[in-house]
Design a binder for these strands. Structure first.
Lengths: 225, 225
DNA sequence: CAGGGTAAGTGTATCCATGACATAAACCTA
DNA sequence: TAGGTTTATGTCATGGATACACTTACCCTG
């Protein structure tokens, strides 16, 4: 019983991770997808993912697959396991169980190209993705729901933005995730009341009145990851 | 690519389930534990659990292990996957990843005895368990937290009780899970306002004024399981 | 059968968070 | 300098949560 001794019926269960990685792009929430080049569902778009190494943490596997398949180099600002999908038959190759993760990449991280085993990698609008391989549509739906829930704790929305940002920009992030419009005045009230933001120097010279720039406060308490 | 072809480095990852099963007993929240009879951590108490079969749903494996190891025959009123633990080294036998589940058993389900591979099975106070094998203390802590969160949706507390129950009994369940006292009047107000309970005939002749009996309303909408 | 013990049951006032809503201020450009 | 465009701001009504003390109903015992 010292080295691994599994019952024979359990020996062929494969363990994988899949990652729904989100980022803001032109005011819309986007999700990172890869186009499969081989295996089942070739040519079809799918969430980045793959098998977990023998000595690998689950979240490490998620990060590795994200980098290998999409050439995204930046560290995700947030990475969170949210559900494990294990229905028999979800993968035609055999019994494969996938620990699904939700990730947030900072604004503007959109330069991706296919890597190992995939022919392309691109951002798609998260609420209206193309047809997806396997049960990835369900995984994506659950990831979106989790993202929306996490938004209540409000810290997470900041991870989509650069270090300094305006309140309208932050509101745009919330609206893109929730897929609905919010009231400007109430949004400001609520966000500023939380005391997570501090103002700095003015900026944003575009059209109309310039907007105040904010940055996030030091970080009083860390949310449960 | 038709039969399972995994990269060699992933071949020896074992997939297991563990179950934190809760029930009310004498006014205290209890968790069901088994005493291991062999393997690592023999003699030590642990959450019921074991390996997932090749053609088995995850929640089916959880139910099966619960029955096999503890002789609990009743259906859990609630079963929910809540986190997957996969740190290398969490099990000395090798790389074993465990999909952890939280279950609620109805009130009074206390007749258990050890089954396959365990020498005993007993209920313990959930907030003050004995030393546990592997990382089961952490799994139990997370299960408790999830149970507390689910309490907000308030349906779940009813699953701990028999079909008819009094408001003080329901309050006792909430207090046992949250590990703090609640105000009687506010509790009634809140619970009755939800419209999930309907009164029936009076009863409960014990000491003091008799308490009104309630039962849960049909079930308007099913919570996400 | 009366009084004491015990637990169930009830109402009000306050506070805080949320949502609806319209106008003024700052900058840019033509 | 006038018009366009976007940021910024305050009030009122509503609903939910919290704090808090006394009355009612039944049982048991003397």
């Amino acid at each position: 019983m010292d080295t691994l001794t599994l019952p024979p019926r359990a020996a062929h269960v494969g363990l994988a991770v899949d990652v729904a990685a989100f980022a803001m792009h032109e005011g819309t929430l986007h999700v990172l997808l890869v186009q499969r080049s081989s295996g089942p569902h070739a040519e079809v778009w799918a969430l980045p993912g793959g098998f977990v190494g023998e000595r690998e943490q689950l979240h490490e596997a998620a990060l590795r697959e994200l980098r290998e398949e999409t050439s995204v180099t930046l560290e995700p600002r947030h990475l969170e396991q949210f559900y494990t999908f294990g229905a028999p038959g979800r993968d035609p190759r055999g019994r494969i169980v996938s620990v699904a993760h939700m990730a947030v990449l900072p604004y503007g991280t959109v330069e991706v190209h296919g890597g190992r085993g995939v022919q392309d990698a691109k951002w798609f609008p998260a609420h209206t993705p193309p047809p997806l391989a396997f049960d990835h549509q369900e995984i994506l739906s659950r990831a979106l729901k989790r993202l929306q829930v996490r938004l209540e704790y409000a810290q997470l929305a900041l991870e989509f933005l650069p270090e300094t940002f305006t309140l309208p920009e932050l509101q745009e992030v919330h609206e893109a995730i929730l897929a609905r419009k919010l009231d400007k005045r109430n949004f400001r009230k609520r966000l500023l009341a939380q005391g997570l933001l501090i103002a700095s120097g003015e900026r944003r010279s575009g059209v109309g009145r310039p907007a105040q720039l904010y940055r996030r406060v030091k970080s009083l308490r860390r949310p449960q990851l």
